[in-house]
C-alpha cells in the first residue's frame, strides 16, 4: 500500500521535472532558465528522499543536503552574474 502510493509520487515528481525541463529549453531569457533549474533541483531533493526510502538508506539524505546547498549557491551566482551583464 505504502509502496504503491510512493511509486505514484515518484511518477508525479518525474512529470514535474519534465515540465520544468520544457521551460528550461524554451525559456525566453536566462532568468527563466535559472528558475526552471531551481524548480528541477528542488523537485530532485524530494526525489532523492523517496529513493532513500526505496533503498532504505539514510546516507542518501546527506546527498540531498549537499545537492540543495549546491543548487542554492548556483542560483545566487547566476543571479549575481545577471546583474552585471545580460
Amino acid at each position: 500500500m505504502v509502496n504503491t502510493i510512493l511509486t505514484i509520487s515518484v511518477v508525479l515528481i518525474l512529470l514535474s521535472i519534465l515540465l520544468s525541463l520544457y521551460r528550461f529549453i524554451k525559456g525566453p531569457n536566462t532568468a527563466d532558465r535559472v528558475i526552471a533549474f531551481d524548480v528541477m533541483t528542488i523537485a530532485s531533493i524530494g526525489l532523492i528522499g523517496l529513493i532513500a526510502y526505496f533503498d532504505n538508506r539514510i546516507v542518501y539524505l546527506d546527498v540531498a543536503v549537499v545537492y540543495g546547498l549546491l543548487s542554492f549557491i548556483g542560483v545566487i551566482v547566476v543571479a549575481k552574474f545577471l546583474e552585471k551583464s545580460l
Binding site: 508525479l12 515528481i13 512529470l15 514535474s16 521535472i17 515540465l19 520544468s20 521551460r23 528558475i35 526552471a36 524548480v39 528542488i42 523537485a43 524530494g46
Partner: peptide, 8 residues
C-alpha cells in the same frame, strides 16, 4: 510539485 511545474 506537479502544480508548481505546471504554473512554471
Amino acid at each position: 510539485l506537479l502544480l508548481g511545474a505546471l504554473g512554471l
